[in-house]
């Protein structure tokens, strides 16, 4: 009984965090803030859901596989997020904010492309 309640609470927490990550990915205005939303919250929700399922299933092999998947995801999601952010900086995508003109981008040979201005130009 207690195990059922804990299982359902963990599933609810994980689903809540996954929905929060997706909603942040839709709602946030900038590529860096979108990375911030999606790389933390979705990993947290994933860990909750997979560990809940593993402890519900119960055998040692399943728990080992689930813990391996969660540890792998916790290691690799920041790497992917940092690589995407580095590509964005190399491409010259400026973050939104007050001091966005002050930020010094490295010389990479790409023409600087601005996401926000491009979207405004598309809608106009």
């Amino acid at each position: 009984m207690i195990a059922d309640i804990v299982f359902i609470l963990m599933l609810m927490t994980g689903t809540f965090f996954v929905i929060t990550a997706a909603w942040g990915l839709v709602k946030f205005p900038d590529i860096y803030t979108r990375l911030h939303a999606v790389s933390k919250a979705s990993t947290f929700g994933f860990a909750f859901i997979v560990l809940a399922v593993a402890f519900r299933m119960g055998t040692g092999t399943d728990i080992t596989k689930a813990v391996t998947a969660v540890v792998f995801q916790f290691v690799t999601t920041p790497i992917a997020a940092h690589m995407i952010a580095r590509v964005a900086i190399q491409r010259g995508i400026k973050p939104l904010g007050q001091n966005r003109e002050v930020i010094d981008f490295p010389e990479t040979g790409f023409a600087p492309e601005d996401e926000h201005e491009k979207k405004e130009a598309r809608t106009n």
Binding site: V18, A22, S39, F46, V50, R91
Partner: peptide, 27 residues
């Protein structure tokens, strides 16, 4: 997505959500 990088990270998160769906489905 306005840029290709938005599409890439959304696809990564789609993989994650599909994994969560598979977990709940197997329970």
């Amino acid at each position: 997505g306005p840029h290709v990088l938005d599409r890439i990270m959304a696809a990564d998160s789609i993989t994650l959500v599909i994994i969560c769906l598979m977990g709940i489905w197997q329970v």
